[in-house]
């Protein structure tokens, strides 16, 4: 039973991270029907933004209460800047192009961001970041300490933090989208951009807002990922991005609540499959394969997702 509760915890934490990233996919897709393939890289850039603040700011030795907010700010600035630059210079010029064009641009962007971090991100000491064979950079473990006893099981502090932070972010986002003026403008634009424009909504600003919010959430996920798993490398974004995209589709792309649901679902499926898959096909080696199997099954069998509406022509 301990194993089960442990994996349940891991699954929920993983799912929370997927959900945070998936929200970015879903918001952008809902408004301009673009699969922002590079969104996983925005998450990765966020993790490195946080790490850079820590290493360059010499935060080693300061208390968690000082280091963590500063790292969060660094992550958000890095992610949001990257996302806004990408939107302005790579995606916006292609807004009326055939659908193939932005997808290929996104692949290019994804490669550029991975390689920029690999080749050009400075770290103290002057050498290049991925010298030699080791790719992973150690990430400071700021949230440690005793696990908290919950009766049937116990939960580690970092896992609890991630779950709480993710829930707060999600609730805040949903409130923002449903209650604020900008949020309602986002909904209107998603429904019908032309009419929204006629109603006096600045559609360009709304699109930028969607990118910005998605990037900020991905930055939070990046920071949490580093804190939870202890190291980051320039390729964490690719797989995480694809899985988050799966989560977004699973919940019905364009649907904010669906992305959250899909994220948790996928995280749980992945962790449970790793533990309980019979024979040789369980274990870490097949973990990603199972995620891709879920991806393919969802896209083929239920492209509208669990909560999404039937979408006619996605060509």
């Amino acid at each position: 039973m301990d194993l089960f509760f442990g994996q349940l915890q891991n699954g929920v934490v993983l799912g929370a991270l997927y959900a945070l990233i998936a929200l970015g996919y879903t918001m952008v897709y809902g408004i301009i029907q673009l699969i922002n393939f590079a969104h996983g890289e925005i998450f990765m850039v966020g993790a490195f933004g946080a790490l850079s603040v820590f290493t360059w700011g010499s935060l080693q030795g300061t208390t968690t209460w000082v280091a963590l907010p500063l790292m969060l700010v660094g992550a958000v600035i890095a992610s949001v800047t990257t996302a806004l630059l990408a939107e302005r210079f790579a995606y916006r010029p292609l807004r009326n192009a055939p659908r193939l064009a932005p997808l290929i641009t996104a692949i290019g962007l994804s490669i550029v961001l991975q390689e920029l971090v690999r080749t050009s991100l400075p770290i103290p000491g002057g050498q290049q970041i991925f010298d030699g064979a080791t790719r992973a950079q150690p990430f400071p473990q700021l949230i440690g300490g005793e696990s908290i006893d919950l009766g049937v099981t116990s939960i580690s502090r970092i896992n609890l933090t991630i779950i709480v932070v993710a829930l707060v972010c999600m609730v805040a986002l949903i409130q923002f989208v449903n209650r604020s003026r900008t949020g309602r403008a986002m909904q209107a634009t998603a429904q019908d951009p032309d009419t929204a424009r006629l109603m006096g909504i600045n559609v360009n600003r709304i699109i930028v807002t969607a990118f910005l919010l998605g990037a900020a959430l991905a930055a939070v996920a990046g920071l949490m990922h580093g804190l939870r798993y202890g190291n980051v490398d320039n390729r964490i974004g690719f797989i995480a991005g694809l899985k988050a995209f799966t989560a977004a589709v699973l919940g019905g792309i364009g649907n904010i609540g669906g992305a959250v649901l899909g994220g948790f679902f996928l995280g749980l499926v992945e962790t449970m499959a790793t533990t309980y898959m019979p024979g040789d096909f369980g274990g870490g080696a097949w973990k990603d394969a199972w995620a891709f199997v879920v991806l393919v099954l969802v896209l083929v069998l239920r492209p509208q997702g669990l909560l999404g509406e039937k979408v006619a022509d996605r060509a």
């Binding site: 699969i35 659908r99 997808l103 694809l242 995209f245 589709v249 990603d288 394969a289 891709f292 199997v293 991806l295 393919v296 896209l299 083929v300 492209p303 022509d313 996605r314 060509a315």
Partner: peptide, 16 residues
């Protein structure tokens, strides 16, 4: 599937 989804499905198969 069609369009973007086809691209992602084939990507998934390639990785599998």
């Amino acid at each position: 599937t069609r369009g973007d989804y086809l691209a992602i499905v084939t990507l998934g198969f390639g990785e599998i």
